[in-house]
Structures are given as structure tokens and as C-alpha cells.
Write a protein that binds this DNA or RNA. Structure first.
Lengths: 177, 177
DNA sequence: CACAGTTAAGTTGTGCACAACTAAATGACG
DNA sequence: CGTCATTTAGTTGTGCACAACTTAACTGTG
């Protein structure tokens, strides 16, 4: 039930695919075969832990990510924040507005380029970093993983993300023209 | 820049933590040190690929997951669907209503237990499975991972999810009483 | 300078996740 | 039998992700 390698060479449906793979499409369609589901589940399980841990800071997880970027890089235009987090303005604009309302962040139009809005930390936002320092260890403890195990998993996930991004580009209709 | 084990024993802030770990909190707070971010990124990258692949079927990814459960198990009460997918009625009720509107599922109150609503496939919903059979392979191809690599990653992720769920339980305030 | 093309934020609309709540049905127990 | 706790769906409200669009500012070229 947990691994199920099932390299069954007997293909049931020779019509659509003239054999070539040792695994049937039917097997692949099982929920517990979908890597994406495991990924999704893990991501949401993380969400639950972060929700608890970040409640003290008054942050959601995406807000915490934005704060991480600002603590690490200081002032940044919205565009740059989005590049670090793979988020666009459609997500960031309302999120940053909420952080501004919370008094953690300040937003002002760049003088050099009036299109750009520079996001910076308020004193309160800077101060919050002290409390945030304790977060990663609590999260790491919740995983029960050793550090090297975490590093390896992260490497695999990053490799996966790169592959998927590349695939999304040439799967997108209107890119072969 | 990529791994940074940094087992630096020189702790900068001896006040809060009387040493004990070889890694400083500061290091852990870097964005590229957060597994959760890699996980989140991978999950969203998958989302992008699924969005493209599932467009032909007229399904979103969560809707696809519900269909997977129904194709595999047939009729199920909403509660059971939620158990398979770790989703509650707050998410499923509107989602199932959309699938019903799309003509893929049918919902009816159970006669035996009037609280329960049984979700089943329409003929159209059953027929859609044929097209869905091609999906997993396209996704697997997009990952560029070998099957055994996928299996191993999935095993790690499931282990992680279990650990996080367990941690969420005893982190939740009001469980030690 | 004029103007087409590009870029940065923001807005709108849809859908998902989840907490908190409501309503209705069921089950257990005195 | 009546009452109360539990179970099951559904609703409401908040926040995130993303596509599609708008607006304003910049850039390059003739």
C-alpha cells in the first residue's frame, strides 16, 4: 500500500499505446500514485504548522515570506519581491497593502521611476525579525528531519520545480510559432 | 550559495540561546534555507503544468483530484471524499457544486442518513476518465524524473506530511489540557 | 518631438484553503 | 420518551494564486 512498484508488463489497452511502457495508464491514475498529491498534501501540512507558529507574529505564511525577503534584502521594488517569491503583482499588491495596514511595511513610489513602488520595512517590521528568528527552528523540529535530509529534499524539489517550469513553457499553447 | 552547511560554532547572540546548535538562527532565516518555500514553489509549478494539461478536460487541479477519487471508488459521501483528499466541506461543497453544474457529478441526500450527501459520477463524468488516462504520463514527462525517483520523493513527502500533522496536533493550543 | 512598444502596479473575477459558524439529522443515555 | 452531544453539509468571511485587463510611466526609433 505504501510503495507499489508494480512493474506489470501486461498491458491491457494495446489500442491507444502500442506498448512501450511497463506500467499501465490505469495504475498511474490512482490517487496514491500522484506525486503532485503528496506534494500538495505536504505543502498544506506545512501551512497548518506555520499557521500555528506564525499566529504570535500576526503573519500568514505568504506574508512571512515577504518579510523574509525584506529582512534579507532591505528595500525592494514590488517587482523584485515578486521575483524572489515567484509571485506577481496580482498577489502581492493586496498582500503588501495588508502588511502596510498592519504597520510592518511602508510603500512609496520611486522618484527615479514613477512606475515602480519601493517596499521597505517600518521600525516595527524590522523589530519583528527578533521574534521571527525562533520560527525556523520550530518548523524544523516539526518536520523531525535531520538537516542533511532537509537539504537533500530541498535540492530534489528545486530540481523538480525547474523541470516543471521548463515544461510549462513549451506546453503553453502559442510558443511554437 | 546553494548548500551553506555553515557549522559555525561562534554564536552571535549568546543572550537568548545559551549555545547548543551548530547553526545560527540567522542562517535559518534565509529564504533559500526554507524547505517549505521549495515545497510551495514546486507545488505551484505543478499547478502551472496541470493547468495547461487539464484545460482540455475543463477541470482545475482540485476538481481533478475529486474526479480521481470518484473514478477509483465510485459513489462516496462528501465526508469520505474529504478524507481521501484532506479537505473539509468548506472547500468541497462549492467545488462539488461546480462539478455538478458542469454535469460531471450528481449529488443526492442519502436515504439511510439524511445528514449525508452521496456524490456519484454522471455518464459524462465517467466518460471523462478516458481523456484523463493520458494526464499522468504527460505530468510525469514534465517532471523529467525517473519512476523510482518519483517514488522515493513521494515517500519522503508522505513521511514529512505525517510528521507535520503530528506536530500540528500538539502545537495546537488547547491540546495539553 | 511623436508615437508605438514595453514595463510596473494595480484591479477584477474565479477558484481554492481554511476557520468559524449554522442547520439538520442522528445517536446515546437517563 | 425527551434531551443533549455528536456528526454531516453547507455558509460566511478572509486570504492567497493566477489570468486577464487597465493605467501610467518609461524607452527606443524615426
Amino acid at each position: 500500500m505504501t510503495t507499489t512498484p508494480a512493474p506489470d508488463p501486461a498491458v491491457q489497452d494495446p489500442v491507444q499505446h502500442p506498448v512501450q511502457h511497463p506500467v499501465r495508464d490505469e495504475d498511474f491514475l490512482r490517487l496514491d500514485q500522484q506525486i503532485c498529491f503528496s506534494l500538495n498534501a505536504a505543502s498544506r501540512a506545512f501551512g497548518g504548522v506555520y499557521r500555528v507558529v506564525l499566529k504570535d507574529l500576526g503573519l500568514t505564511y505568504p506574508q512571512y515570506l515577504v518579510m523574509l525577503v525584506l529582512w534579507e534584502h532591505g528595500e525592494l521594488p514590488v517587482k523584485k519581491v515578486g521575483e524572489h517569491l515567484r509571485l506577481d503583482s496580482g498577489t502581492l499588491s493586496p498582500l503588501l497593502k495588508r502588511l502596510e495596514t498592519a504597520g510592518l511595511v511602508r510603500r512609496e513610489r520611486s522618484a527615479r521611476d514613477e512606475r515602480s513602488v519601493v517596499v521597505g520595512l517600518t521600525d516595527e517590521g524590522t523589530a519583528l525579525r527578533e521574534q521571527a528568528l525562533r520560527v525556523p527552528r520550530r518548523i524544523a523540529a516539526a518536520t523531525t528531519f535531520e538537516l542533511d535530509e532537509i537539504l537533500e529534499l530541498r535540492a530534489r524539489l528545486d530540481k523538480l520545480t525547474n523541470a516543471l517550469d521548463a515544461a510549462a513553457l513549451d506546453e503553453t499553447p502559442g510558443c511554437g510559432a
